[in-house]
């Protein structure tokens, strides 16, 4: 029966290939925490962390829905985000030991911020903008951690995400991260331009401006070729504007205009900031003016939209 033996061999080969493929998938999609040495021994400064917290806009998503802006917000979570991939619910990231992240270590927090990996070792969904936060310095992560541990704890337990197959398979996010998680800088800035370099760090890193201002492809990966050129509003109808120096962007604004907008919420013709950007401006208005000028210098260096 040579025929049967051959098909048996083929079947065996196919099975071996499938097993190798599965193993490759399993390896390629494995959640990877950052090297613990990255944050080992770092001392966080809560006062500096409060500024990082403003830049990151953490409270915009993690405070309870409808909560009034507060100096020390309660990060009880619960805000829902309806997206094409399903409905996400912001988790409790207050320092409550059971309901929040009070039992986490700095290393656990850095794994979430810099690699999108939870304390349980599983992938986090990128509704949490770790694709941008991955560019943050370990010191900023440590400072932010120090501040967040000083915020009021909440015992609230928001419901989990509500996602259809296949998006409910967290392991699949490993594949997505291969495409989307690239912590290299997007815009070239002259290394001797300290102001624009600082601005790039704030915009591409903790400020995560591109998460709303840059269009995504069908897989939800940010399009680096259309960086900050505007995108559909993720929160509902309307658009998030082009903030490049292009013709539909803000090329007509001076650096001073941009810094004043980020401080006051007023455009050069005294229209007002609105939508979800209003909270961003409320946060940024408390930053050192030099940081707002840095963001402005960077935005001037972004390639213009066509």
């Amino acid at each position: 029966m040579p025929g049967r033996r051959r098909s048996g061999r083929l079947l065996g080969a196919a099975a071996a290939l499938a097993a190798a493929g599965a193993a490759a998938f399993w390896l390629a999609t494995a959640p990877r925490r950052p090297d613990p040495a990255l944050t080992a021994g770092l001392q966080g400064d809560a006062a500096r962390g409060a500024l990082v917290f403003r830049v990151g806009g953490c409270a915009a998503c993690h405070a309870a829905p409808g909560a009034e802006p507060a100096e020390r917000p309660v990060l009880s979570g619960g805000r829902r985000f309806v997206t094409p991939f399903g409905t996400f619910t912001a988790p409790n990231v207050s320092p409550h030991p059971e309901a929040g992240i009070g039992a986490w270590s700095l290393q656990d927090f850095a794994a979430a911020m810099l690699r999108g990996v939870g304390r349980d070792g599983r992938h986090l969904y990128p509704a949490f903008p770790y694709v941008s936060y991955a560019r943050m310095t370990p010191q900023d992560v440590a400072d932010l951690w120090a501040w967040m541990r000083a915020l009021p704890p909440s015992d609230s337990r928001p419901p989990g995400h509500d996602l259809p197959f296949p998006f409910n398979i967290r392991r699949g996010l490993g594949l997505w991260k291969l495409l989307a998680l690239d912590p290299s800088w997007v815009v070239d800035v002259p290394a001797d331009d300290a102001l624009a370099m600082r601005g790039r760090y704030l915009v591409e890193g903790p400020g995560h401006c591109a998460e709303c201002h840059t269009p995504r492809n069908a897989l939800g990966v940010l399009d680096r070729a259309r960086w900050l050129q505007g995108a559909p509003n993720p929160d509902g109808p309307g658009v998030v504007p082009d903030i490049t120096p292009g013709p539909k962007g803000i090329g007509g604004w001076s650096e001073e205009d941009i810094a004043w907008y980020l401080e006051s919420g007023f455009t050069p013709d005294y229209d007002s900031v609105g939508g979800s950007m209003a909270e961003v401006v409320r946060n940024l208005s408390g930053l050192p003016k030099e940081d707002l000028r840095a963001i402005a210098a960077y935005l001037k260096a972004v390639p213009p939209s066509p």
Binding site: N233, G236, P237, G238, V239, V240, P241, K248, S264, G265, F266, S272, V273, G274, G275, S276, A278, E279, V281, R282
Partner: peptide, 17 residues
Amino acid sequence: VAGNCKSCHEAWRVKKE
């Protein structure tokens, strides 16, 4: 007064362009 501009446009305006 300026806070009114932000809060009102935050809740009641949709940016179209």
